[in-house]
């Protein structure tokens, strides 16, 4: 340890002080029990739901005179029109809109799932997608580079994404960028970008539960389905 490190250590030592409360085994045990109760309750609720559905199905088949519907209902794909950004999203199965943006993005920074300027969606397994857009004079290549640079500066992401591939978003050419950030986590973040009629669109995706790399293919597939539902204004 050199002089700077020692001084720094002394400083951290002086700043940190003493914890006001002890962490006890009893408190940890209570949380473990609470966690298990929640898990078991969720499993029990799922089992009960399955049993109810199965028994309803059996009951339906057992009634010979039950009137059959004239036509089988076709669940329509819900289509969301973004209030601020004008695109439409034909929601794939398992996806839903959480919130529309409260205001338009001003083009600065790198908004995320919690910002008021994004349309936020949640899909299968808790994977999220959020959309924001603003006018830009850059072409797609430059816009993709800017998006990565700003996200890297603000959110501690690697300067170079792990993958950068060409895709189509709502009929327009786009780039799909995969990265892990913050750098010390196993969070997969995907950013899809396109520039359409002078508007730069960014569609971000992550799974906030921090899924293991083994689950990333499922998150990626869900996000691809979400992207396929996007249509941009002509």
């Amino acid at each position: 340890m050199n002089g700077m490190d020692r001084q720094l250590r002394d400083l951290l030592e002086a700043a940190v002080g003493e914890p006001p409360r002890q962490v006890t085994v009893a408190a940890v045990r209570r949380r473990v029990i609470r966690r298990r109760v929640v898990q078991y309750t969720a499993v029990a609720a799922a089992v009960i739901a399955v049993l109810v559905l199965v028994s309803l199905g059996t009951l339906g088949r057992a009634l010979p005179h039950a009137p059959a519907p004239a036509t089988r209902p076709h669940p329509e794909t819900p289509i969301i029109t973004s209030r601020h950004y004008g695109y439409t999203e034909a929601l794939p199965a398992g996806w839903r809109l959480v919130t529309q943006a409260k205001q338009q993005w001003d083009g600065n920074g790198a908004p995320g799932d919690g910002d008021s300027v994004v349309d936020l969606y949640v899909g299968p397994g808790g994977v999220e997608a959020w959309v924001y857009a603003a006018p830009t004079k850059e072409n797609l290549a430059a816009y993709a580079i800017t998006t990565v640079r700003v996200a890297g500066a603000v959110h501690d992401c690697p300067a170079v994404p792990q993958t950068n591939q060409a895709i189509t978003i709502g009929g327009a050419p786009g780039r799909l960028l995969d990265t892990q950030c913050p750098a010390l986590t196993s969070f997969l973040v995907e950013l899809a970008v396109t520039v359409h009629h002078g508007i730069g669109f960014v569609i971000g995706s992550q799974n906030p539960s921090g899924t293991a790399p083994g689950d990333w293919p499922a998150d990626r597939a869900a996000f691809r389905e979400f992207l396929a539902g996007i249509r941009l204004k002509r």
Binding site: G112, D113, G114, H155, P182, T185, F187, P208, G210
Partner: peptide, 14 residues
């Protein structure tokens, strides 16, 4: 550290 990172991640953009 992983827990802290995931907490940070949830509030990452904020």
């Amino acid at each position: 550290l992983n827990t802290w990172s995931s907490w940070r991640r949830r509030r990452w953009w904020g």
